[in-house]
């Protein structure tokens, strides 16, 4: 059985458009276990109910940004090991460095092609 059949991914983005796009792309890779959340707190809630292997999160979100979510995940005993892919409009040094310190697994710059997303995920979890 392929990895894509088992991999559970949580997509976090405040824009429903982005959630839709990423979900759409993930489905096109054959990933069926996708949950979504519209913000950081929603993501934490969702993950507590329904654990995932990988979080694909937007950086720029109201309230809790992507890195704050990452930090919260790393602090939670149950979620500290979850994979984290940050999707950001701009990969500036500050974001990447903070991400690295917090244990971000990978990042992806918007806009991206479907293949880029696949590549970014595969760099974390291996071949889908």
């Amino acid at each position: 059985m392929a990895l894509r059949d088992q991999l559970r991914i949580l997509v976090v983005d405040d824009m429903s458009t982005s959630r839709g796009l990423i979900t759409q792309a993930l489905e096109s890779f054959g990933i069926g276990n996708i949950t979504t959340a519209a913000d950081g707190p929603g993501a934490l809630q969702s993950i507590a109910k329904s654990p995932v292997h990988l979080v694909v999160s937007d950086y720029n979100m109201p309230g809790m940004d992507g890195l704050a979510l990452l930090q919260a995940l790393r602090q939670g005993a149950a979620t500290q090991g979850v994979g984290f892919l940050l999707v950001t409009g701009r990969a500036d040094n500050d974001i990447l460095q903070r991400g690295q310190q917090l244990g971000m697994n990978n990042y992806l710059t918007k806009p991206f092609e479907t293949a880029d997303l696949k590549g970014a995920i595969e760099a974390i979890v291996g071949r889908l």
Binding site: L3, H53, N93, Q97, M104, N105, Y107, A123
Partner: peptide, 16 residues
């Protein structure tokens, strides 16, 4: 801005 040298961190999922 110089590009930050970010290396993806792999995760061993050990799934199948």
């Amino acid at each position: 801005e110089e590009a930050v040298d970010f290396k993806p961190m792999t995760l061993s999922l050990d799934l199948p």
